[in-house]
């Protein structure tokens, strides 16, 4: 994954590669916030979003099922199966639903890092 303005990104260590189940997600604690981290080993890709599903404000996305829609990686919330794109966070099942915040992920050796821009996590902050 590449972002143009890498200068403003703070990378924090999340977990080891082996900690994240293949084709699934885990929840990572960053300060007082929760980030969902997903691994797509078949494509060699990693994604991160806020853990909070905006539909019913539940901390659940890391437990959702991952997959693709016409090639676009996505996650479906375990509560009501609302799907969100992992590329830009938009809701794929309901145009009026709020979008997720997404975060860059990088792998160094067997360690996973998540990038936070500027002031930190915005959405997904605890209520």
């Amino acid at each position: 994954m590449s972002l143009s303005n890498t200068a403003t990104i703070t990378w924090f260590y999340a977990c080891k590669v082996e900690d994240v189940p293949a084709n699934g997600g885990v929840c990572v604690k960053y300060r007082d916030e929760q980030i969902a981290l997903y691994h797509f080993p078949r494509r060699g890709e990693w994604y991160a979003t806020q853990n909070l599903c905006p539909h019913r404000r539940q901390m659940a996305l890391s437990r959702g099922m991952t997959g693709t829609q016409e090639g676009e990686p996505k996650v479906a919330c375990p509560f009501h199966k609302k799907s969100f794109s992992l590329l830009d966070g938009r809701c794929l099942s309901d145009e009026t639903e709020c979008s997720l915040s997404v975060y860059p992920v990088k792998i160094e050796e067997d360690r996973v890092y998540i990038g936070i821009t500027g002031g930190g996590v915005h959405a997904g902050a605890m209520a």
Binding site: N23, F40, R42, G64, M65, G67, T68, P73, K81, S83
Partner: peptide, 10 residues
């Protein structure tokens, strides 16, 4: 083909 989804996985 693809990665599957919440319909076909279960």
């Amino acid at each position: 083909h693809g990665e599957g989804c919440e319909v076909c996985k279960p």
